[in-house]
Every structure is written in structure tokens, then in C-alpha cells.
Amino acid sequence: MKAKRTFGQATALWEATRQTASDDDFAKLENAERVILAHRPTSFADAATMLEVVMEQRGDGRSDGLDLRAIERVVSLLRNTAADAPRPGKTNGSGIVLGASRA
């Protein structure tokens, strides 16, 4: 029985193979994209990854490319906000722990 790929594993595979995927890698890459796109984001970084996958598809968007550039700006904002955001489970100075992990 095959283990179900996690979002993190799918993201790592997608990032490592998306630019250099051979025909042999296509099924793995397609599966990774499905896992990523079906994921419910729990962070801005997750959301950014999902938008990057959508952007990579280049679909039937606007002929002037404004839609893709807008998504690129959203990804940039999400990545920057995620990098600056406080980590869950850290104290905020008042001794209260925020962002407790959900099991």
C-alpha cells in the first residue's frame, strides 16, 4: 500500500522537479500538484505555494498577463508576511501563549 503524500512532501517534490521534470516524472509531479491544490492552507506560506502551483499552470488567463502578475504580487506579499509573522506557540511578552497547535 502506498503512503499518502503530505503537503510538505508534495511541496518539496514539486519545487525540486517542476523545472526539470522528465516524462518519467510527470505522474509524480501531477500527484504532487493535486496534493498541494487540495490542501487547506494553514499558513501564508502554504497559500503562497498553492498560488505558485496555479501560476505554473499558466491556464487560459488574460492575454495581457495581468492576472499572472497580480498573483505573483499576492505570492510575494504572502511570503513576506509569513517571514515576518510571529511563530505559533511563542509568548507575546505577557506570558500568554498564542497559536496553540491543533492535533
Results as ranks from 00 to 15, higher is better:
N92C: 08
K90L: 10
R62L: 10
E30H: 11
K28Q: 03
M1A: 14
R102T: 05
N80C: 08
K2R: 09
A3N: 14
R34H: 11
E56H: 14
E15K: 14
S76F: 09
G65T: 10
A12G: 09
F26L: 07
F26Y: 15
A32E: 04
T49D: 05
M1G: 14
G93T: 11
G93F: 11
G8W: 01
L78M: 13
A32P: 02
R34W: 00
E33V: 04
A21D: 06
S43F: 03
G8E: 15
A85F: 01
A32S: 02
W14F: 13
G89S: 03
L13A: 06
D60A: 10
A100I: 04
E52Y: 01
R73E: 04
I71A: 14
D46M: 08
P88F: 01
S22L: 04
G8I: 09
F26H: 13
E56W: 12
G65P: 10
L77P: 00
A3F: 05
M50Q: 15
A3K: 14
Q57G: 05
G99V: 09
D46R: 08
I36F: 05
R40T: 09
A38W: 06
M55L: 15
R62F: 04
I96W: 09
S63Q: 05
E30A: 10
G61C: 06
S94P: 00
A82S: 15
R79N: 11
G65W: 13
P41V: 10
N31F: 02
A10R: 06
R40E: 01
F44K: 07
L13W: 03
R5C: 12
D84W: 06
S43R: 08
V97E: 12
I36C: 12
V53H: 01
R58G: 05
L29F: 00
A47S: 08
A12L: 14
A100L: 05
V54S: 03
D84L: 07
Q57E: 04
L77N: 07
T17H: 10
R73D: 05
A85D: 01
L78D: 00
R34D: 07
Q9D: 08
K4F: 01
D60K: 02
R79C: 10
D67Q: 08
D64K: 02
